[in-house]
């Protein structure tokens, strides 16, 4: 039962490149209800924009049969981003996702995924996401 601890430290292959366009950033800015004039010039993306690529990369990992993660019982509980620089329009992003930690949490389990977001060879931002997989009695 539970997630496969042998997968701790496993690094997934880089995700398919994602081109950051003006349209994608402005849709995200608008959905946040942002009024900051810094976004009006259409050069940088908001601090939480990286989730667009990191969540997609992690979803591939969630479905990896080797991980034995019950995808139907996941709750995203924590998120951190550490920025080297902002994401800019024109960046072509890839994500290197890895399993950093899996541990019990009461009747459930909690997994930490590290997601390094790169533009070409340059590290732009590192994300950490904690996902609670609710146990059968949780």
């Amino acid at each position: 039962m539970g997630m496969n601890r042998d997968m701790i430290g496993h690094v997934y292959p880089p995700s398919q490149p994602y081109l950051v366009t003006t349209e994608k950033v402005s849709a995200f800015v608008s959905a946040l209800g942002e009024t900051n004039p810094a976004y009006a010039t259409g050069t940088v993306a908001p601090p939480t924009f990286p989730i667009v690529v990191t969540m997609h990369a992690m979803e591939e990992a969630f479905h990896d049969p080797a991980l034995q993660m019950d995808y139907s019982r996941i709750v995203h509980s924590d998120q951190r981003f550490q920025y080297v620089r902002p994401i800019r329009i024109g960046d072509e992003l890839t994500v290197r996702a890895s399993v950093e930690e899996i541990k019990p949490l009461g009747p459930s389990e909690i997994a930490t995924f590290k997601t390094e977001v790169l533009s070409g060879d340059e590290l732009v931002v590192t994300g950490w996401s904690k996902l609670v997989v609710r146990g059968p009695d949780a």
């Binding site: 942002e34 976004y39 939480t48 924590d78 998120q79 550490q82």
Partner: peptide, 25 residues
């Protein structure tokens, strides 16, 4: 999470001034 950081970025003006950001939902 995306909206909470606006308290900080509206205050400093420049959203790229944020170097680390974390929350528990």
């Amino acid at each position: 999470m995306g909206r909470a950081i606006r308290v900080v970025t509206d205050w400093v003006g420049d959203p790229t001034a944020v170097i680390d950001y974390s929350v528990r939902m």
